[in-house]
Amino acid sequence: MYTAAALAILVTMGLALVRALLGPGVYDRVLAVNMLGTKTTLLLAVVAFLYGWPDFLDLALAYALINFVGVLAVLEFFQNRARADEP
């Protein structure tokens, strides 16, 4: 059953990557990064159980904690740019 879930996650990662490559705008790329980030976390958790490495769940935990920092940085980046554009 872990295999089924892992395959679904992998296919979703592929779909997200296609979205990242197609664009069209920059925000679609950010969206794809965010999707791939959560899917990677899930994949690590599922694979840790699939192969019986529960010690390695620390990795998924690390991603769950710090993955959103990148997207927050994107928000800050565009906020700074919006302020710089103002007179």
Binding site: R29, V30, A32, L44, D55
Partner: peptide, 21 residues
């Protein structure tokens, strides 16, 4: 930059699959 973030995620997943935690 965004694609580089994706590259890093895929790389980490790859390392993990290869048991290099």
């Amino acid at each position: 930059v965004m694609l580089a973030a994706i590259f890093s995620l895929l790389m980490a997943a790859n390392f993990f699959i290869l048991d290099a935690a």
